[in-house]
């Protein structure tokens, strides 16, 4: 004879959540254009995607669920705006947190330009649109990338989560907030990364082959129906 104990199960994960087709078109187009530029040698044109008062910050972390030795986090560490890891008194932490928050689109894009060059695996992207109103659009992207100028034999695959908050602007949307979390991919993720480059159809909402932009000046701000 036993007892009727807790039998709760973890629900099976679902794919991207876009709220509706119109928002999906907007967000997918935005992300294709954003990451097409982000993955080139010149991230400067991204300035058109940011609001004058945009803010950006990143945190980098070892993956806490991995038992084995992990690749180091390199250049990201000194920029990591992690409220749990910055040492010092309350005043010192506040000062450091303030320094690590990049404010204004010029400063933001300068920071993005200084980060390692990347290649993102668009097939790994999972997108969640988490707030929509007439004045605000918030969405987050989870996925994988590698550092394209990493000289290691087997460059590490990184996992990331990036939250974008955008406001409508003339002819498109502008980012007011961009928050990036970087960690090392799990071994399952590393094995699956950058595999779906062939003609195999993918259920991923984002194409594995984002269309090349015709010119670097092409706007990254997609048209949005108000």
């Amino acid at each position: 004879i036993t007892f009727d104990v807790e039998k709760a199960v973890i629900p099976v994960s679902k794919g991207s959540h876009f709220v509706n087709g119109e928002i999906q078109d907007l967000v997918v187009k935005f992300l294709k254009e954003f990451y097409t530029i982000y993955d080139t040698d010149n991230r400067q044109p991204l300035i058109d995607a940011y609001h004058e008062h945009a803010i950006f910050s990143l945190t980098c972390n070892f993956n806490p669920a991995m038992e084995y030795r992990q690749p180091n986090l390199g250049d990201y560490l000194k920029l990591s705006r992690n409220a749990l890891k910055i040492p010092g008194s309350e005043t010192e932490v506040a000062r450091r947190m303030d320094q690590l928050l990049k404010r204004g689109r010029l400063v933001v894009v300068a920071q993005l330009t200084a980060l390692p060059k990347t290649t993102h695996d668009a097939n790994s992207f999972v997108v969640d649109v988490n707030f929509v109103s007439n004045t605000l659009l918030s969405f987050s992207v989870n996925g994988l990338f590698k550092e394209s100028d990493n000289k290691a034999d087997k460059p590490p695959i990184r996992a990331f989560n990036r939250c974008f908050v955008a406001v409508p602007a003339q002819g498109g949307v502008l980012l007011i907030s961009d928050m990036l979390t970087i960690t090392n991919a799990t071994s399952e993720q590393t094995q699956a990364a950058f595999k779906s480059t062939g003609p195999t159809p993918s259920s991923s909402p984002v194409s594995s082959n984002p269309p090349a932009l015709t010119s670097p000046s092409t706007s990254v701000t997609p048209a949005v129906a108000p």
């Binding site: 609001h51 008062h53 803010i55 910050s57 990143l58 945190t59 972390n61 070892f62 806490p64 990591s80 705006r81 992690n82 409220a83 749990l84 890891k85 928050l101 605000l136 908050v165 007011i176 907030s177 928050m179 979390t181 960690t183």
Partner: peptide
């Protein structure tokens, strides 16, 4: 492991 925050304008 980490915690970050932004004010929204």
């Amino acid at each position: 492991t980490s915690l970050d925050s932004h004010p929204l304008i």
